Simulated scan of single mutants.
Amino acid sequence: MPRIATLTMNPTIDVSYDVARVQHTHKMRTTNEQYAPGGGGINVARVFKRLGGEALNFYLAGGATGPTLERLLSEFGLGCCRIPIAGTTRIASAVHELETGKEYRFTPSGPTIKESEWQDCLDSLSAALPLDALVLSGSLPSGVPADFYARAAAVARESGTPVVLDSSGDALAAGLEAGGLLLVKPSQGELAALVGRELEGIEEIGVEAMRFVEAGKARLVAVTLGHRGAVLARAEGPSFLPAPEIEAKSAVGAGDSFVAAMVHALANGRDELEAFCFGMAAGSAAVLSPGTGLADPEDIQRLHAQICGG
């Protein structure tokens, strides 16, 4: 059984509701209220566990909502390593409008983190490694330096643990600049921000992703393109997979599900293209249901057969 660690610097308590119709000013009665632990690394861990792996969650949490997040993680059967903080864990909401099928998402920026708190996080990681992989996923809250993921990756490399990075903005740029990553998963928009210009065609996206592979920044660069599919850059060159034609009901956790499935496949010895295909199936599976459910293993297997023929 593959064992990984995930790091979530800005976790959430994810709340989802159904509402007949969204109207300003009016009190809207909701149904189907759901609560789940969320944030990039935690979402990755949830899907990784569903696929038969084991994930140890490192996360920062505090305030009145911190214990609630800890309880939710326990209810989901996830191994936890909490780093206490003075700030309050954020609550994110997803509202599914039944009349139109549209989803509305509200995500606070999160607490400000002290230097002693993020340093405690690095120390805790160092003590837990090595493992089959360390997944660094999600945004960095206020107070955490932009090169934090690069520092965490350095800690992992000292133990021989492969590192996966899924973030954005300065955190993604700094992590890539440090290099030596197993996998990085930017979206098309995030890759465009890295290179400083808009990227439209599949070929152009592949060329830019390959630059990071050729420079030794990452062995694999998987660029997700939403409903269009994804591009994988690796030493043998770029590959493209179109997304299956499905009705998307939610965007919550699609990228995290992609990462979880691809890392799970790699940790089980599957080759890079097979792992990429498995990731595509999981990312597609995540959008089938509204709310915070993430990818279901049965949907992943069905879509994998559809996308990859097996």
Rank of each mutant, 00 (worst) to 15 (best):
P2I: 11
L7A: 09
N10K: 07
T12R: 08
D14P: 01
Y17H: 15
T25H: 14
T25I: 08
H26R: 14
K27T: 13
A36Q: 12
P37L: 04
P37I: 06
G39M: 01
G40W: 13
N43M: 10
R46A: 05
F48C: 02
K49F: 09
R50I: 06
R50V: 11
R50H: 12
L51Q: 03
E54K: 14
L56R: 15
L60W: 04
A61Q: 02
G62C: 01
A64Q: 01
T65Q: 08
G66I: 00
L69Q: 00
R71L: 10
L72S: 11
L72K: 06
L73D: 06
C80V: 01
C81L: 12
R82K: 14
P84H: 07
I85A: 12
I85L: 07
R90G: 02
S93V: 12
S93M: 08
A94R: 09
E97R: 05
E99P: 03
E103F: 02
E103P: 02
Y104Q: 04
R105D: 05
R105S: 04
T107N: 02
T107W: 00
S109P: 00
G110S: 01
T112K: 09
W118N: 00
Q119K: 14
D120S: 15
D120L: 07
C121N: 01
D123H: 15
S124M: 12
A127F: 02
D132W: 09
S137N: 12
S139H: 05
S139N: 09
P145I: 02
P145H: 05
A146W: 11
A154L: 02
V155D: 00
V155W: 04
R157A: 15
G160S: 13
T161S: 05
T161Y: 06
V163R: 09
V164E: 11
L165I: 13
S167C: 11
L172F: 06
L172T: 07
L172G: 09
E177C: 03
G179P: 07
G179D: 10
V184T: 15
Q188N: 15
E190W: 11
A192D: 11
A193Q: 14
E198R: 15
E200F: 09
E200G: 15
G201I: 00
G201C: 06
I202H: 11
E203P: 02
G206D: 10
V207G: 02
E208Y: 13
R211G: 12
L220W: 13
V221S: 03
T224A: 06
T224K: 05
L225C: 08
G226Y: 12
G226T: 12
V231C: 14
V231P: 07
L232P: 13
A233M: 11
L241Q: 13
L241W: 00
P242T: 03
P242E: 12
E245M: 09
E245P: 00
E247T: 15
A248N: 03
S250H: 09
A251D: 01
V252K: 09
A254G: 00
V259F: 10
V263D: 04
H264D: 07
G269R: 05
R270I: 02
R270S: 06
L273H: 08
L273P: 01
A275G: 12
F278C: 01
G279C: 09
A282V: 08
A282E: 07
S284C: 07
L288K: 15
S289M: 05
T292W: 13
G293L: 11
G293I: 01
D296M: 10
D296Q: 14
R302A: 06
H304W: 09
A305P: 00
Q306R: 15
I307M: 04
G309W: 04
